[in-house]
Computed example of a mutant assay.
Amino acid sequence: MIVNSVIIEKIEYDGTLKTVQLTSDYTGQLIIAFPDEYTDKRSGPFYFQNRQYDKVFRKMARANGSRRLDPRHFQRNELLTQLRIPWRNIPTERNEFSYYALSLPEYAIPLEVVISNPHTKSRMKKAVIKDKQKKCYVIYIECRSRFGVFSFDLDCTFKNARRQEFDKYQYSDDDLIEDVYAHYDAWEALASDNERDQVNIYMEGNNVEIYTVQQAAAVGRNAQANNTHMSQIKQDQQRLEPEKILESLVKLREEMMKLANSPEQVIDVAKIAEAEIAVNEGDIPKAKNILSTVGKWTYDIATKLGVALVVEQLK
């Protein structure tokens, strides 16, 4: 895969982060491959066709050193580590793109990985690959934009694991790119508003059905979008009384606390508590954004409890 540049980061258990950026200006065309493609030894999360980039990467990694994240971006307890990394204004060129890669600590297993657009708060696609050679998970983000710069927020919850658990574990969620060469929705990132309108008109004129939702679309007569959590602010939802929303959230959280028995479920309990705080502070849109990220387990409990107000927020 030919790219314009790569941004490579490595987080450690103590909250130190090392960052290296390579561009095609250094030593010619930048062609990369991913950990599950070859078995040759490499220095970072990419294979470089031009081996000179491996040398440049090692040299820059030594020179750049590491910096420690502050508590707003890195928090750790005995069970879990929560990481938040914001990136803004990564330069992009039309018809070209860059790749971002974050390596987790050795043997760490990701419990939740969310990449979001800082402007719209919508979720973005990513790849999460187990790097067996480096004994870590790597999060990859394809950076494309028709505006000349690309920004994202990365939120990750992970835990330390033993070798046996790491080997057996496989991360999965609804926002994964299964094929890193597929360039998911790349045409939308590169097309202008007028060009996108023309594509949609063409599809409609040729009986290609487009089902557009806030964060994803299923295209084609038999296409489906499965296990997708969407958040839509409706007129009637905006008129809901905060007291009723809060009452529903409290009821849901208390039931979830009784049933939670896994790290993922504990994370969802914490999200409901965070949504409660947002409602108490009068920030209903923030509460809705939080609720849109919870998993199916929470949705099922809300439905079972008959908490209609919260269920509406989760749809």
Rank of each mutant, 00 (worst) to 15 (best):
M1E: 10
I7V: 15
I8A: 05
E9R: 12
E9A: 06
K10G: 04
E12S: 15
T19L: 00
L22F: 11
Y26G: 01
Q29K: 13
F34H: 07
F34K: 04
F34E: 03
P35M: 14
Y38E: 10
T39W: 13
D40K: 14
Y47R: 01
F48T: 13
F57H: 14
R58V: 05
A61F: 08
A63D: 15
N64S: 11
P71Y: 05
Q75L: 13
Q75E: 13
T92K: 00
E93N: 08
R94N: 12
S98I: 06
Y99N: 01
A101H: 08
L102M: 07
S103C: 06
L104I: 01
P105E: 04
P110H: 02
V113D: 02
I115F: 05
N117G: 00
P118S: 03
K121E: 11
R123L: 06
R123S: 11
A127L: 02
K130F: 03
D131V: 05
K132F: 09
K135P: 01
K135C: 06
K135M: 03
C136R: 11
V138A: 06
I139K: 05
I139D: 03
Y140D: 01
I141W: 02
R144P: 03
L154D: 05
T157V: 15
K159F: 03
F166L: 09
Q170R: 13
Q170L: 07
D179F: 12
Y181M: 06
W187A: 13
E188A: 14
A191G: 05
A191V: 02
D193Q: 09
N194C: 11
N200H: 11
M203L: 07
E204I: 06
E204W: 11
N207F: 14
Y211W: 12
T212L: 11
V213W: 08
V213G: 10
Q214F: 04
Q215H: 02
A217I: 02
N222H: 14
D236W: 11
K244G: 11
S248W: 03
K251E: 15
R253H: 13
R253I: 03
K258S: 09
L259T: 15
A260E: 14
A260V: 15
Q265R: 08
D268R: 01
I272V: 15
E276C: 15
I277Q: 14
E281S: 13
D283Q: 05
K286P: 01
K288D: 07
S292Y: 12
T293C: 07
T293P: 04
V294P: 05
G295Y: 08
W297L: 14
L305T: 02
G306S: 09
V307S: 07
E312I: 02
L314Y: 04
K315Y: 07
